[in-house]
């Protein structure tokens, strides 16, 4: 499958400040998560992809073309920024119709598509008469996503679109992004809500300090993600009893118990011993402990987003 985004030795500096430093990568069609701690270069990458800034060196292509000041690329892109800044005084329909027309739609078509997009992001029509600046953060996120749906883009870039949304809202957005992917639209998404990204994305690009660390990206590859997690967190009513049960069966290399929170963090001796064959649910039932939640601890994404971890390439 050919890449929609291709970067070769791409760098971007702001004077002495590093944005991206000599990175090379390819992004394939589908939903790709862009992950990294603050200052990793995510926004720089997005601005380069959007053609708002130029590379300091190296080459970046989107759909095979350089995006800087290139309307042909812009016609196929949509962008949902992280910031909450929206034009003062405009109502959502007014704003979306204006933006739709800027993308090339006629006024009636822009209005029809704006209505459909606002409906799809589940912004109730009674809110359409309010000005966007008066919206809550979650409602602004929905309008910002709606403006991405107007012109049938082939690549949608979303910077922290889940911020300010409750779990239902986040699932709504995730569902829209899945539908976009089904329509053949690629999605690049950054988010600090890592388990949402893990559930949504087929591929990941991990950034740290302006670099694309190879070891982290290898760990994030689909093959690596198919492996069992090396550590697991349980939320249960008797974490100490569950720990003893797992230790007795020789499954555990080490563990941490937070009894007051009902949490048990377990590091497996061999993860496959616990997870493989799909009989771990029977094992957990056998323990007699009431388990409320099972979650892989410190996933590859969490490691990648941890700014204290040593950088490696």
């Amino acid at each position: 499958m050919s890449a929609i985004v291709q970067a070769e030795n791409l760098s971007r500096f702001y004077g002495m400040i590093l944005g991206l430093n000599n990175v090379s990568f390819a992004i394939r069609p589908g939903i790709t998560g862009i992950v990294g701690p603050n200052g990793a270069g995510k926004t720089t990458l997005f601005r380069l992809l959007l053609g708002q800034i130029r590379p300091s060196s190296g080459r970046l292509t989107v759909f095979g073309e350089e995006p800087w000041n290139n309307p042909s690329v812009h016609a196929r892109l949509a962008y949902c920024p992280e910031g909450e800044a929206v034009p003062a005084g405009l109502r959502p329909l007014e704003w979306l119709v204006g933006l739709g027309m800027l993308s090339g739609l006629s006024a009636p078509e822009a209005e029809a598509r704006a209505r459909a997009a606002l409906t799809r992001v589940k912004l109730a029509p009674e809110h359409w008469r309010k000005r966007v600046t008066a919206y809550s953060k979650g409602m602004k996120q929905r309008v910002k996503l709606a403006q991405c749906l107007l012109h049938g883009p082939k690549l949608v870039i979303l910077d922290e679109p889940m911020n300010g949304l409750d779990p239902v809202g986040r699932e709504d957005i995730a569902q829209i992004l899945r539908e976009l992917a089904l329509d053949g639209t690629s999605v690049l998404i950054s988010s600090h809500i890592l388990h949402d990204l893990e559930a949504l994305c087929a591929d990941f690009l991990l950034l740290r300090w302006g670099r694309v660390p190879r070891s982290l990206n290898d760990a994030a590859s689909p093959e690596a993600r198919a492996r069992w997690p090396e550590a697991t967190t349980f939320r249960c009513d008797a974490p100490d009893r569950l720990a003893r049960f797992l230790f007795d069966r020789g499954l555990v290399r080490g563990c941490d118990i937070a009894a007051d929170e009902g949490m048990l963090h377990v590091r497996w001796r061999d993860p496959a011993q616990f997870y493989a064959d799909g009989n771990f649910t029977a094992l957990l039932l056998e323990s007699g402990v009431h388990i409320f939640e099972v979650q892989a601890t410190a996933s590859f994404l969490e490691k990648a987003a941890d700014p204290t971890a040593a950088s490696s390439s």
């Binding site: 016609a75 006024a107 799809r120 049938g152 539908e179 329509d183």
Partner: peptide, 17 residues
């Protein structure tokens, strides 16, 4: 929702926007 058809840039509509 199904994503609408892609649209080509149009300077007169852009002016209208």
């Amino acid at each position: 929702f199904t994503l609408p058809e892609p649209v080509a840039p149009h300077w007169r509509h852009a002016w209208g926007g």
